[in-house]
Design a protein around this nucleic acid. Sequence first.
DNA 1: TAGGACAATATTGTTTACAAAAGAAGGCGG
DNA 2: CCGCCTTCTTTTGTAAACAATATTGTCCTA
Lengths: 229, 229
Amino acid sequence: MRATRELKAEPHGRKEVSVADYLSAAILNGRFAPGQRLIEAELTSDLGVSRGPVREAFRRLSAEGLIEIVPNRGAMVRRLSIVEALELFEIRTELEALAARLASVNMKDPRVRTAFEEAIAPIWSIEPRHSTADYLLENQRFHAAVIAAAGNGQLVKLNQQMHLSLIMAQISSSLTSHVIGTSLHEHRMIATAIRARDAEAADAAIRDHLHRAQEFMRAMPPELFRRED
Amino acid sequence: MRATRELKAEPHGRKEVSVADYLSAAILNGRFAPGQRLIEAELTSDLGVSRGPVREAFRRLSAEGLIEIVPNRGAMVRRLSIVEALELFEIRTELEALAARLASVNMKDPRVRTAFEEAIAPIWSIEPRHSTADYLLENQRFHAAVIAAAGNGQLVKLNQQMHLSLIMAQISSSLTSHVIGTSLHEHRMIATAIRARDAEAADAAIRDHLHRAQEFMRAMPPELFRRED
DNA sequence: TAGGACAATATTGTTTACAAAAGAAGGCGG
DNA sequence: CCGCCTTCTTTTGTAAACAATATTGTCCTA
């Protein structure tokens, strides 16, 4: 019953949401590993809340695809199979290509343009990236910026539900500095095309980027993924 | 405590899921109107379950986008704004275009082909459609068949999360038989292109279809939608 | 009568305790 | 070694209670 990690206390204020946020952050930054089991009793005592909010958070996260609930066995951090990961990339390619085209058009709005420029600023840095975790964050921010510039709220929501972060956390151990360099260069190509308001080029550049990433993933050791059913 | 509508009784078997299914069906077929409030106490007595499973089902459906939860006010059936609906259609266009291309390629697999043919068979019927509810179902089945033929499991999942049904239920009152006829004709064009394994034509046909539907929606009385924030 | 303060009611958010069922683990006899 | 049994852990559902918040109704006053 002792709370080792306190949640921010909101009076009568939806602990279920706090628990979901806590778990979500822990999973996406890798503190909870894919496949790890989440035990109600542990969380209730660790977070100092009762079963109700924990179970409600589980249901929400399960619907969001971050965890998996096996009947009578409980929840575990979701682990994608290689097929699922490739399928997600296939879809992601279409969604981001759409976003890149819309973003290119929207560059004519100066407010959208400056917001975009600010958000992607880090990609122009010459400095070598310190850690893969840093790159992961930069990568996620770049793609999020493109999608935000598209100005389609549903696209933003859908992107969050697709859990690129989940995939990235799973494969992060195999990222080399060479791969990161290539990816960074492609980000710059995409940004340049969008800045130039060249929708065609932006579409092509982001498709290239994601296809290359897809091929990279396919070549990865299979033990990084959940084995196929 | 009396259960007026029994859920199928599974022994110790995840009533939360039964409740979610029940609500989901009731919402999608229009028995629960958009904006209608869902009260825990009513559902517990109507369905004969306690508050726990009901609340868990709420959280899941909220994450799926079928209902909305307002803090301290509870759950209500989600009602889309016109902007949300149009944004969803924009995304949907890309996803279904991808599905149509993949489906065209997959037609070379005879099993996929026969499954597809069977699923879309109703569109060839000459008979006039009896009710808009009938057409809604036929429409949903047609689009689901195209997506299923694409063979991308994640695409199927994502499609379910996009709630075309929710939009359709919202605008169903404005569907005329002329609109239905046009839509049906376009379905046939799409199916013909996929059957011919002409990915380009299928892509174009489904984009046309969805763009027309989008324009139709834009011309609709605004009171059918939630007012913009 | 219109409008506002205030009390009564309804509803949600959370905790606690208990009971039932399923899965996992380990031992035991064959 | 294999199958079966028991035991333990864990999930799942129920019920009752209380606190916190929202809604509604009422009464009073201008």
